[in-house]
Amino acid sequence: MSFYWQKLLKPAVFLLCMTPTIYLLIGAYTMDLGANPVEYLAHRTGDWALRFLLIVLAMTPLRRISGWRFPIHLRRMLGLFAFYYITVHLLIYAVLDLALDWSFLLEDILERPYITIGFTAWVLLIPLAITSTNKMMRRLGKRWKQLHKLVYLIGLLGVVHYWWLVKKDLQEPIIYAGVFLLLMAMRWKKKGAVT
């Protein structure tokens, strides 16, 4: 890749990753989010959170298959976008849907398994986001890699979260679960080659 493209790549991908947010903000501003806007925002940000988790998990296999280096350069930013969309998803649920009623929030987190694991996924992502800087990578050394293996568990939690909340039609959760399993299987095969 030429130097010119390398410089452009990150800002371009950043903007691309922001388009769902811009799209939803325009929808919210014009109140064009359908009959149940809170649910719509929660679902769409949830979709993107899960998609970004899977995109992050796809970077290592993509690098290995293609030989390109850029997937690894983008990995941190994509991971932070996953954290960003999960955080927005959680905020929409807590602020708009529950109106920050702490007793309801606590009841949901403790008693509803799909919310318990969704919330757990967000909590587990916090240390990964905090330790995503170069400085932290250097500081943690070998342990950094160990810590960041948590993303596999977080991906699993995200997929199960979606699976458990769907009322009856499992078609979409099955697709996400399938992609997740495929990405994990690609790691299993060539364990020694994983970077």
Binding site: A35, N36, P37, V38, E39, D97, L98, A99
Partner: peptide
């Protein structure tokens, strides 16, 4: 959640 309130900040 009451449908059709027209606002994002309507409580349940």
């Amino acid at each position: 959640r009451v449908i059709g309130s027209g606002s994002l900040f309507t409580k349940r």
